[in-house]
Amino acid sequence: MTNDQAAHRLTVVGAGVMGTGITTMALGHGVPVLLVDVDRAVLDRARTAISQQLRHAQLMGALPADRAVGELTTSLSVRDAAEATAVVEAITELPEAKAAVLGEVSSVVRPGTPLISNTSGIPIAEMAEWVRRPDELVGTHFMNPPYLITMVEVIQGPRTGAATMAAVTALLAALDRKAVVVRDAPGFVTSRLLHPMINAAARIVGEGTATVEAVDTLMQGCLGHPTGPLRTADLIGIDNLVDSLTVLHKRTGDEACRPCPLLLDKVRAGELGRKSGRGFYDYGKALS
């Protein structure tokens, strides 16, 4: 472990798809991680998923060869984050849930500890009302899978302090990530562009204009989208996508962000994408 990695003790709150992916990225770069969730079974599944993702990242050449993997510990209590040098909140995109978690974390960590919300759409200015020291709150939007995608959208809220921005930039540098800083707004840049596009693609399928495969093939071959919007929806998690679109619609009034009927139908049917084994495509079985 280099001095850059030794300086960091990361806590990740939320052991879902993004929380496990962020944990994998940090561990693979030699940073120790405390992973917190309210459900022991979820933590156990996350530990298995992280082991699989570390092997995948190594096979893809996405991890530095000269660093030992960081130590993973798990906990059911946010209070165990007291000694963290930074905390990443990576729970579902529901304002009430994020408010509860960020408020509790803020009361536990030492002053000066960056609180990093991995959010896809809730403005940082809004979340700043939920924490004790708003200058310590900053937004990030890691793309999935975060252990393979090296660019990270970083959202500086109107009350985010310079010390927090410097600390987050240093953490991302230690993780070999490129930070692109943007200003605060609902959906920021990536979600504001990507999520309405996926919604439109699903609407086209729902209206019978084209099949799922046709939409993705055309977007790949004609417009250069690397995977197609509906495969991307399956990777994001269709429930997460609906939550994010709902946040965007409520805060912008943009009808393009109102979740279309097909997305809502899939959530009701439990067809959430790769994590459930079926979404727009069939993956055979749910991912661990």
Rank of each mutant, 00 (worst) to 15 (best):
V182I: 13
V88Y: 10
V17D: 08
S191A: 15
T92D: 10
A6G: 03
L94D: 15
S75K: 11
R231M: 10
E153H: 08
T252Q: 15
M151F: 06
A200M: 13
M25T: 10
V17W: 03
A162N: 08
L94G: 03
K275D: 07
G14Y: 05
V212L: 09
L235M: 15
V182H: 08
P229H: 04
E89C: 05
V33Y: 00
A214S: 11
I116Q: 01
Y147G: 08
K250R: 12
L27Q: 00
M127H: 04
T11H: 09
M151S: 05
R132E: 11
E255N: 12
T11F: 03
V182Y: 07
P111C: 02
E213Y: 13
G157C: 06
M143N: 06
D4V: 08
L43N: 00
L59Q: 14
R67M: 13
E213N: 15
M25N: 13
A99P: 09
G121C: 11
S244W: 02
V38Q: 10
T217F: 08
G16V: 05
G228W: 05
G19N: 00
V182G: 03
L54Q: 03
T150K: 14
V152Y: 06
G161D: 01
Q5G: 03
T119W: 01
A210P: 01
V42K: 09
H29Y: 11
R159A: 11
D243E: 14
T164S: 13
V78L: 09
K266L: 07
T113D: 05
R278D: 08
G208N: 06
I122K: 08
I22K: 01
Q53E: 03
A125C: 05
R268T: 04
A49W: 00
A179H: 00
A99L: 05
V105W: 04
W130L: 04
T150C: 12
T2I: 07
V267W: 06
A68K: 10
V154T: 06
G277H: 09
A81N: 05
R79S: 15
S51E: 11
R67Y: 02
L63Q: 05
A256R: 13
A201H: 05
S244Y: 02
T11Q: 07
V33R: 09
C257S: 14
Q58A: 14
S77L: 13
G284E: 08
P261S: 15
T150Q: 10
T217A: 14
M18H: 03
G14E: 09
G208W: 14
D265T: 12
E83R: 14
G228A: 10
G221P: 10
H195A: 12
D135S: 11
E93H: 10
V101H: 12
T11A: 10
S51A: 04
I236H: 05
T119H: 04
A185V: 07
A201D: 13
A233N: 03
T190S: 14
H195N: 04
G16C: 13
G61C: 03
T113W: 10
P261K: 02
V109I: 08
E93D: 11
D265R: 15
D80P: 07
A162H: 10
L172H: 01
G16H: 15
T24L: 00
E255F: 15
V36N: 07
